[in-house]
């Protein structure tokens, strides 16, 4: 099971890297979304995917799944959600202000703008 998940996460990373290297800003943001999906999946896999009850004490099971990676993922999800929201709004503002979503046209060194 872990091997399958690692392959899936790897495919997500590959897709994310491919998208982030493209010219369009929106494709780059979709790439960051896939990157964080891959990261969270990897974090879950790293904690181990052995069978066990959900980490709720009321289940009275003999074996529970590891609760720590789930807490870490929950934290990482809200953080990446916040960052993605900021990123999208800044991309929208940049589109309004610069009139392009092409990263090739966002170059240059004029510092006294």
């Amino acid at each position: 099971m872990e091997i399958l998940m690692c392959i899936v996460a790897g495919l997500l990373f590959a897709a994310a890297v491919y998208l982030m290297l493209s010219k369009s800003l929106l494709r780059i943001i979709i790439g960051t979304g896939l990157l964080s999906h891959g990261t969270h999946l990897m974090l879950l896999t790293m904690g181990g995917l052995k069978g066990g009850a959900v980490p709720v004490l009321g289940e009275h099971a003999s074996l529970y799944t590891d609760p720590i990676p789930q807490a870490l993922i929950l934290t990482a999800i809200v953080i990446s959600f916040g960052v993605t929201a900021v990123f999208l709004v800044i991309a929208y503002r940049a589109y309004q202000e610069l009139g392009t979503d092409n990263m090739e046209q966002m170059r240059g060194m004029e510092t006294d703008d």
Partner: peptide, 16 residues
């Protein structure tokens, strides 16, 4: 964003 994702992965590896 990329370096933060790498940081989370590195923490995941370290945890495993």
């Amino acid at each position: 964003v990329i370096s933060s994702a790498l940081f989370v992965i590195a923490v995941g590896f370290l945890y495993s």
